[in-house]
């Protein structure tokens, strides 16, 4: 569904990505792992169109994304839940969700999606008028995911959803991700939390300082000794 092919991305003169590739097939949960500064967020941002690669290509459902403007890409079905959630702080939960369904594609399904989100996250339904800036980390993550769901996505990219969250909340988040996937959503999960990610993913890629170093079925990677040494010791 999503193919990232050898992308090179620069920040000014600093080379952030030096030929990263990955592929996500329909219905899968794919994890993109790596330590801080490896380039995971850069990769996701390039996929969603925030960044433009110097060379290489990003293809979604057969469409080359370089032809599209940033604000048109999510209507194709490729939706990102950004790192740090990036909610609109001065808007209420409800308004954030409304913004999620701004696009012409999502607006007709707005009520239907709202109902689905509130069913998935009942706590948000009670607090819908509360300003997004005043929520706890876990609640914000829920709103961010809900807001992304309002965009009628076909492939959901989550950038470090466990960041800054207590372990209990992290479990809830990952449970939600599995839930959504069971309903048919394809997932690309960017994470530093290697253990939990590999437990729910089908396949995974590992990148280091801007290029691929490892990939394979999640189960295999979980048992891989070198990976354990390098990453599981930290997490």
């Amino acid at each position: 569904m999503l193919t990232i092919n050898q992308i090179h991305v620069n920040y000014g003169s600093f080379q952030a990505l030096d030929g990263v590739s990955l592929q996500v097939n329909q219905g899968e949960i794919v994890a993109l792992l790596g330590s801080n500064g490896a380039g995971k967020t850069t990769t996701i941002n390039t996929a969603s169109g925030v960044l433009k690669p110097l060379t290489g290509s990003v293809t979604f459902k057969g469409e080359e994304l370089s032809r599209y403007k940033l604000h048109d890409i999510s209507t194709l079905g490729l939706v990102q839940v950004p790192e740090g959630r990036k909610l609109f702080p001065e808007m209420s939960i409800y308004e954030n969700l409304l913004i999620g369904s701004y696009s012409k594609k999502a607006r007709p399904k707005r009520q239907e999606n709202l109902d689905m989100c509130f069913e998935l996250f009942p706590k948000l339904a009670e607090r819908r008028k509360q300003a997004a800036g005043s929520l706890s980390g876990g609640e914000r993550q829920m709103v961010a995911i809900a807001r992304a769901l309002m965009q009628c996505p076909e492939l959901l990219m989550l950038d470090e959803p466990s960041l800054g969250l207590a372990p209990v909340i992290v479990d809830q988040v990952f449970e939600t991700i599995v839930n959504i996937n069971k309903r048919g959503m394809t997932i690309l999960l960017v994470e530093q939390n290697v253990q939990s990610s590999l437990e729910i993913a089908d396949r995974a890629y590992v990148i280091e300082t801007g290029h691929n170093v490892m990939e394979g079925a999640a189960g295999d990677l979980l048992r891989d000794e070198s990976l354990k040494a390098a990453y599981l010791g930290l997490s």
Binding site: N5, Q6, S21, L54, G56, N212
Partner: peptide, 16 residues
């Protein structure tokens, strides 16, 4: 520089 890069990755490429 871009032209040089494209020459380099034009040959192989593709997903492992």
């Amino acid at each position: 520089r871009k032209a040089t890069l494209q020459k380099q990755s034009g040959g192989g490429g593709g997903i492992h």
